[in-house]
C-alpha cells in the first residue's frame, strides 16, 4: 500500500518548549498582509492614479512627499512589512523546492542578507534624504527649495 504523507506533515515537529518561530512567521504573514493591503493600495493610488500618475513621478515629487513625516513613516513601515513578508514567503518557497543542505542554506542566507541590506539602505534613504541638495539644477528640485 502506498503511503503519502499529509501535506501539512512538518519536516520537524514544533518545539515543545519556548517560542515556536514557524507559528509566529505564519501569524506575521497574515497580520502584515492586512496592513500591507492598506499601505500598498494607498501607495499605488497616490503615485499612479492621482493627477498625471506615473508621468508625474520625479525627484521633485519624491521630495514633496518626504517633506511630510506622514509619508516618510508610511513608506518606511511599508518597506519593513513588505520586505520581511516577501522574504519570508521566498523562504517558504525555498523550503518547498530544495532539500536541507548546502544549497538551501545558501539560498536562505542570500535572502536574509539581501533583506537586512535593503532594510538598512531604504530606512537610511527615507530619513537622511535631502530634498534640496546644494548645487543641483533648480528646475529639478521641489518648489519649496530656496534654489527653486
Amino acid at each position: 500500500m502506498t503511503v503519502i504523507e499529509s501535506p501539512r506533515t512538518p519536516a520537524r515537529p514544533a518545539p515543545k518548549r519556548g517560542v515556536n518561530l514557524e507559528k509566529w512567521g505564519w501569524i506575521y504573514m497574515r497580520a502584515s498582509g492586512v496592513v500591507l493591503v492598506v499601505l500598498v493600495f494607498g501607495h499605488l493610488f497616490v503615485n499612479l492614479m492621482v493627477g498625471e500618475g506615473v508621468k508625474a513621478i520625479d525627484f521633485g515629487f519624491v521630495g514633496g512627499k518626504w517633506a511630510d513625516p506622514f509619508w516618510q513613516w508610511w513608506d518606511v513601515l511599508m518597506l519593513w512589512l513588505a520586505l520581511i513578508h516577501g522574504a519570508n514567503g521566498m523562504r517558504t518557497i525555498v523550503s518547498d523546492y530544495t532539500n536541507p543542505g548546502t544549497v538551501q542554506r545558501i539560498l536562505k542566507g542570500a535572502l536574509l542578507l539581501s533583506t537586512i541590506v535593503l532594510l538598512v539602505l531604504g530606512t537610511l534613504v527615507v530619513f537622511t534624504f535631502d530634498p534640496c541638495p546644494a548645487g543641483s539644477p533648480a528646475e529639478l528640485l521641489p518648489s519649496f527649495c530656496p534654489a527653486a
Binding site: D58, F59, G60, V62, G63, L79, L83, L118, L121, G122, L124, V125, T128, F129, P133, S136, P137, L140, L141
Partner: peptide, 12 residues
Amino acid sequence: ILDTALVRVSPE
C-alpha cells in the same frame, strides 16, 4: 528599493 535609493545620489 534600489531605484528609489537613487534620490540619495542626485536628482539627475
